[in-house]
């Protein structure tokens, strides 16, 4: 049994005016095994954020199923959904989504406080995380005192402190410069090496080349996938670029046909 199974997922956005809806996801199926590091790529508007929002239980699909550890997410009741999300999933967003009113420490603690954990337990969990992410010095600072990379690492710590089955990330390097991106991806790799399953949506070929597997999304469907295997980052980079070129020119051909 896979950790995460997505079967025939469909999502139609109906406009309020009642016009024809946008079919953001047509028929998406894939599986993620425990301990994988998967990147999802695709053009703007191909449905990446939509997919991630459904996996995150922030949105409901129009059709198809999402199974986490064999449990159908559609069977989770609406009012248990928040707790389900808190206990199983961790998120990292492009624009960090830290709360200005809290220190770094309290931002990280937030999900645990909401889950009603004791202060001692929170502290116990915090220590190894801050060490791994290198933010031990920043704990008493406020978000407006941090750089972008530091903010994103704080956000990762917040996502991981609940020890989620999967870490979901929507363009985590989107707001970072190349150096900060590189160090963030290194963090992802080392987390993955320790067994953390990661699913990351990205526009950046560099970012995707750090993953063990890359899925390509086009027009609401899985178009292709690449396994990194034993290839180096450089080789992977070239391979992904090729696939993207074929995919975009392919869409041009389709347009003519």
């Amino acid at each position: 049994m896979s950790l995460l199974e997505v079967k025939n997922l469909r999502k139609v956005y109906t406009t309020r005016l009642g016009g024809t809806g946008v079919e953001a996801l047509k028929n998406v199926s894939f599986a993620v095994e425990a301990g994988e590091f998967v990147a999802i790529m695709g053009e703007s508007g191909s449905g990446k954020t939509t997919l991630l929002n459904i996996l995150a239980a922030l949105d409901r699909p129009s059709g198809g199923r999402v199974l986490l550890n064999g449990e159908d997410m559609a069977s989770v009741r609406e009012r248990d959904l928040t707790a389900f999300r808190r206990d199983n999933l961790g998120f990292v967003f492009q624009d960090f989504n830290l709360l200005d009113a809290f220190t770094v420490r309290d931002n990280i603690f937030l999900p645990l406080v909401l889950a009603g954990k004791s202060y001692d337990e929170m502290n116990l969990r915090l220590l190894p995380l801050t060490k791994a992410l290198g933010i031990g010095e920043l704990l008493n600072k406020f978000p407006y005192e941090l750089s972008g990379g530091q903010k994103q690492r704080t956000a990762i710590a917040r996502a991981l402190i609940t020890q989620p089955a999967i870490l979901l990330a929507d363009e985590p390097t989107g707001a970072l410069d190349s150096k900060a991106s590189e160090s963030l991806l290194r963090v992802f790799e080392s987390l993955n090496a320790q067994g953390q399953t990661i699913l990351m949506v990205t526009h950046s070929v560099t970012a995707a080349s750090h993953a063990k597997r890359t899925l390509f999304l086009r027009d609401g469907m899985i178009y292709h996938q690449l396994y990194r295997g034993n290839r180096t980052g450089g080789e992977m980079f070239a391979e992904i670029s090729n696939t993207l070129t074929v995919m975009t020119s392919g869409s041009g051909e389709n347009g003519h046909a």
């Binding site: 922030l58 009012r79 707790a83 998120f91 989504n97 999900p111 917040r158």
Partner: peptide
């Protein structure tokens, strides 16, 4: 925004 973030991080509507 704060409340949006808090809901994403695990705060229920009731909370």
């Amino acid at each position: 925004r704060s409340f949006q973030i808090m809901q994403q991080v695990g705060m229920t509507q009731r909370e």
